[in-house]
Design a protein around this nucleic acid. Structure first.
Lengths: 125, 125
DNA sequence: CGTCAACATAGACATCCATCGAATTAGGTG
DNA sequence: CACCTAATTCGATGGATGTCTATGTTGACG
């Protein structure tokens, strides 16, 4: 049972594998607070470069990738670093330094939580 | 005027209920074009006010709501109109005028497509 | 026709943000 | 220590964006 350690977007719930910040979009109108929280995640994925970086990490062998593995997205290297930071701040990625390289990894519960928020259905992972 | 101006983010596929723009995020790194398309949708949901409006429409009785039903989100009426236009341009909402009122409705396949993009699983609606 | 209500558009403005080059930190190696 | 590579941080900048007020449009009604 891996758990979050970045932003408290997801509260640790013992009885549920997916503990989203918010109810499904279709259940009831979001409150201002819920919208603020969820919009932060959507916003993080709302940039093409960030989406490519996120997809590159998510699809990389072993579930993680160092920056050098995914830097080929057509922008300068500082810009890549900037976007990875944003994704991390949004709680979508975690990072860990191992020697020379920094490895990024997808925060596992987030994808399921966002999926449930959109569809109202908990995906069978 | 610009009534039927929905973006062709989703191509009509006869044999599948869900016709996403892109493969699941975890399948392989997104191409620049895929990222551009998908990011447009995430970006539309990346604003708190838009997310509240979208949730209000999605959760409203009958699956649709007129602007007057959902305008209580703390911003001026023109701003609400502006955000609804953005959501429409992103292909997330459709609108129809009936008499005095304009009704907005969630484009049904979009939620499932985005959910599948995130989780890699087609939700059982 | 005149008026009101619902909604959209136009223009202005302040803030945010993606991007870059330059400088900086950190780790490895000779 | 000197040097190289990986990655982050800094400072600047041009463009995008959210918000407002004012105005326009559209339909209903007397």
């Amino acid at each position: 049972m891996s758990n979050t350690k970045a932003l408290p977007l997801l509260e640790p719930a013992a009885d549920e594998a997916v503990a989203p910040c918010c109810p499904p979009l279709t259940e009831r109108p979001f409150t201002a607070e819920e919208a603020e929280t969820a919009a932060r995640m959507f916003k993080a994925l709302g940039d093409p470069v960030r989406l490519r970086l996120f997809s590159a990490v998510a699809s990389h062998e072993g579930g993680e990738a160092c920056v050098c593995d995914i830097s080929d997205v057509g922008v300068s290297q500082p810009t890549v670093s900037h976007h990875l930071k944003k994704l991390k701040e949004a709680g979508l990625l975690t990072s860990e330094r191992r020697g020379t390289w920094v490895y990024y990894r997808v925060e596992p519960s987030v994808l399921a939580a966002m999926g449930r928020l959109l569809t109202g259905v908990a995906p069978t992972v």
